[in-house]
Design a protein around this nucleic acid. Structure first.
Lengths: 196, 196
DNA sequence: CCTACCGATCGGTAGG
DNA sequence: CCTACCGATCGGTAGG
């Protein structure tokens, strides 16, 4: 009676999602096949569809999970009484923390969102635009108070967020970059870059 | 006798390459089909193979063309008598110039190199590692001379190069970012970030 | 440069 | 969760 593998663990769906993020990250969304994903989990491709409804649904869940986390943190920061520079630091550190703790999810959501279908594609992009707009506002406030350099806020926002993503490559070398010092160095580079 | 379309222009291959870069950029390498590419050029998919030997060959040519340009410029800068900071500025400005003048090629070579086949994949990655190593050396020299902040050079290299790529998103908003001022703002952000 | 076509592979379904 | 399978589509070739 006992089924040797594929126990009906309730978080089977979570396992699928985790493996999908890992494969999407290494091979890209399109280059990842449902057969590869199934093989990683020790089941047949057809069996995946008892837990999910489509390949795109996996991508959708990854992207919106990540987006929700970033939105929630930003909302929290906005409620705190911090200077623009302090808010910026808290946000950048959160981005770095996400990249370090959930690299697959964040990486996939940053790169493969293009393959979302409507209406989710539009929804995702709208959320991201609003997020970046809030960051630009924080920077503008810092400039107005003389705390930050008079840079065009959209240029600074994109530059900062893009630089933070360089963490993706920290694992690449023989002796991997990392540790508290590396994080602080990156933060220093960015905050000194915008500060007056 | 006159063929109405598809004149035997000698740079037909160049047209294919240009269109391929454009499609690869918008849709990704895997999601771009040879039928799409052919349609853009007004010919049948099979006809492409009179000018190229495979889809991957297109990617290969894009990636190595870009790599060659960056390597050549770096070699030139290294021969000039400039301070580390001046070298850095020249290099970053060249990156920005490439992103602005040939966005499709640079974008594709930055993202889709994963789909290169061996031995080109290894060759490409080796070239890139050597390029980044040279940048790290320049930064280390700047630190030794007290001109730059004591940041871990690999962290700074990846952060700077990644930030420069944010230019890819400058076209995205309603009133696109751009112009000399935007470039100078980005340069300021980065150079002030690393300078002592 | 085209017509005709192929083997491979894909995401997904039927039915148990 | 599996076997069996399908329609669609892909990169590429044969032969002109």
């Amino acid at each position: 009676m006992a089924r040797p593998k594929a126990a009906a663990t309730p978080n089977r769906r979570l396992q699928i999602l985790t493996q999908a993020a890992s494969l999407f990250r290494s091979n890209g969304f399109n280059a990842t096949t449902m057969r590869q994903l199934a093989e990683q989990l020790g089941i047949e491709a057809a069996s995946l569809y008892n837990h999910i409804s489509s390949k795109e649904e996996l991508l959708r869940e990854i992207c919106f999970n990540v987006a929700n986390e970033f939105n929630t943190q930003l909302a929290t920061v906005q409620l705190q009484e911090l200077s623009p520079l302090q808010k910026l630091e808290a946000i950048l550190r959160f981005h770095i923390g996400m990249l370090l703790s959930r690299p697959d999810d964040v990486y996939v959501s940053n790169r493969d969102w293009k393959h979302l279908k409507e209406p989710w594609l539009t929804n995702f992009l709208t959320q991201r635009r609003q997020y970046e707009h809030q960051l630009a506002d924080i920077i503008q406030q810092g400039i107005d108070r003389g705390q930050l350099r008079p840079l065009q806020p959209p240029v600074a926002v994109l530059g900062l967020l893009s630089a933070v993503r360089s963490i993706e490559y920290w694992q690449r070398s023989k002796r991997p970059i990392g540790g508290t010092q590396a994080v602080d160095d990156l933060i220093t580079l960015l905050l000194k870059g915008v500060s007056n």
